[in-house]
Structures are given as C-alpha cells and as structure tokens.
Computed example of a mutant assay.
Amino acid sequence: MRSSIHLTAREQRITWELLETLHSSLDLHEVLRGAYGVLCQLVPADHGALCVSLPEDPAAYDWAVADLPPELFAGYGALAPHDFVRSAVIAQPNVVLRDSEMLPRTAIERSVMYRRSRELGMRLEQAMAILFAVEPSWHGGITLYRDRRRPFSDRDRALLQHLAPSIAAATRSCRRFGDSIRRGDALEAALRREGMEVLVVAPPASVLSRSAGAEALLGRWFTPVERSASALPAPLATALGAAAAAPASGPPAAPWARRASHGELRADFVPFVERGRTLWVVELRERAVAAAPAAWRGRLTERQVEVAERVLRGWDNALIAEDLGCTPATVKKHLQRVYDALGVPSRTGLMAHAAQRG
C-alpha cells in the first residue's frame, strides 16, 4: 500500500535522493545501507536494522544494515520468538507500526528484547517498523529505534509508509537480479522457479540478453511485424516507454497484458542501474486457457463454453465482452444460461463445479 501524503520541498528533495539511491545498484547491502542513511534524514532515528529473511527460518536473516550492537544479533535466532517488533509486523505485513501499536508500554519494558538492549548499554525506548511481504519465499523489513522517550509521530509513520513500496521494490530487484544477471545459470534456475522468462533491455528497446525460453514465448505472442531480432516487440516497447516516463515516486505501473484464445501474457518492468546507466528487466509470465470440462460441451453451446472458460480464468463480464466482441449484457445472458444448464448459482459455483470435474 502507498499512503497519500503532501511532501514539503525538503521532503521532496530527500525523497528524490532516496529513490536515486534505491536505483543506484543491484547490490542489496549497498542499496539498503545508502537508503538507510537518506531515510534517517526524513525520519530521525538513533539506531536501525534493515534485513531480508526467510519466513520459515527465524535464524536466516541477512542483515543489510544493523546499526545496533553486534551482540544483539549474534544470537538473534533464539531471540526472535521474543522480539515484539517482529511478531507485530508479521501479523500486519506492509503496514508501518509504532511501538504503541505493538504492545502496551508496561509489556514492552518487561519484554526480553527491551531487557537485552539495556544489558548491552542501550535504551531502545521507541520503535517503528514495517515488514515487506513481497514474495512467499522471502520477506524484507525496516526497524527504526530511538533511545529516548520521543515517540515516532504520525508524520514519521506516514513518510515511511509512503516510501515503503519503493524500498520493497528495490529490495525485490536486488534479490532477484543482483547476482543472477551476472550468473546465467543462477538466473535460469531462479526463472524456472518463478515460472517466467525475462529480457534485459536498454531503453528505448534494445534487448541485451534474454532467458532461454524467452524467444519461443515471444514467437507465440507477437507477430513477425511486431518483432525484430534485437529489439523489444513494439507493444512491449510502448509499455516500457510509459513505465520509464512515469514519476519514480509514483505507484508502480500496472502490468502490461495481452489476451488471446489460448491464454494471457503479462509483463512487468523492473528498473536497475548497472555501471551508471538505467536498464530494465522485462518479466514475462504466460498463463494458459482454463479449459471447460469435457462433460460441459454436450450441455452448452460453443459460445457458452467460450464464456465459461473465461470466467474460469477470473475475467469479469466487461473483459469477456471485449475479448469476444460483444456487450457485457450479452455476456450476462450467456452466463445465466450456463448457470441454468449446469445447475450452479453463481461464478463461484461454476468454478467449484469445474474443479470437481478435474
């Protein structure tokens, strides 16, 4: 989520500096260390921690920034279950929380984390944090601390919430592409796991490299007129131009999509900087048509089958109408006849009926 907030001239200047830092490299530690220094100009803090973690393994933390005593992190695997900050943000991912929203003050002062910090000569009196639950396989997080009783304000919270999507996106880019782009085998393994193909593009449309299956995928989705040997297909080049022209501080662009009778192709555009120039990773994901069960075909007309299959893909009536060249009202009539023929009450019932028949 991205909050709505009016930035002062100073805040705008620092925000632009932060965004430039986030896109300055694909080295996770370099990016997050730089971002932390700039972030503290907007939201003053005495200490902080920025990390990437594996949800299933509390001990697997990659501390990109640990502006706290090393002893505090040396045994963090054992301390993690008692960390009230960690517990709170896991329960409310992608939302900035202050310590007052995590635990009552008396409970904080009785907590293992608070007592441990005081044993190390620190006074972690106030905290503010957010967990980036961007992908199932990993999480990212930021925690800011103050060592005196000066609570983080509503403005502090709004600023961090406003910047959180950009920090999360940069962390995601570093995790996915930082080392892998320079190690082809690792990139291919990551792509197979993610179920996608990628192109690395220099604006406006020069393809520098591509994953092993990208060429075949492009051949399935773009005509020879739209394609050339070394350039991004024209529709993708147009979408990339729009993404590159969008303000860096704005929300991420919606994925580009093309739909056909055999399925759907989606493209996301992820910027990164290498040797001082901005390049783009174009992520391509293909989704095949959800076929209607064979038993339906004897009970539905050909057009009703086409409508039902698009419902199984999760399309709404307007999208189905656009794809089939008719009106939403016509789609609604076809869909009602599908419900009547199959004895189901709704879209949800239709999907359940299909699932029961394999």
Rank of each mutant, 00 (worst) to 15 (best):
P252G: 06
E17K: 09
P247Q: 09
P93Q: 03
V38P: 00
R148H: 14
A78W: 13
A80N: 06
P70C: 10
V43L: 01
A170R: 05
W315Q: 14
R277Y: 06
V31S: 03
E109L: 00
L54V: 15
V112G: 00
D57V: 15
P251Q: 11
E30I: 10
P165E: 10
L144T: 12
R183W: 12
R105N: 06
T327V: 07
V112A: 02
K333V: 15
A229C: 09
D316W: 15
P233S: 05
L124E: 05
L312Y: 09
D156K: 01
S111T: 08
A216G: 11
L187M: 12
G195C: 03
E283W: 11
E215D: 14
S53E: 08
H29S: 15
R118Q: 13
A245P: 02
R115C: 10
R155Y: 01
D83Y: 14
L163G: 01
A74P: 04
W296E: 07
F73S: 14
D57N: 15
A243W: 00
D156T: 01
R98F: 09
A257W: 03
R123Y: 12
T348M: 09
G195I: 08
C326L: 13
E286L: 01
E274V: 05
A164T: 06
V198D: 03
A216H: 11
E264L: 09
D67S: 01
L342Y: 06
A45T: 01
L39A: 10
M351L: 15
S180H: 09
G298Q: 14
G349R: 02
R86N: 13
F222K: 05
W256I: 00
F84P: 04
P204F: 06
V31A: 01
V225I: 10
G77V: 11
G121P: 07
R287V: 14
H6Q: 11
L232K: 03
E188D: 02
E20M: 13
A164E: 04
P235I: 09
G241N: 03
R146G: 02
G48A: 08
V307N: 01
E30Y: 10
S24M: 03
I14V: 15
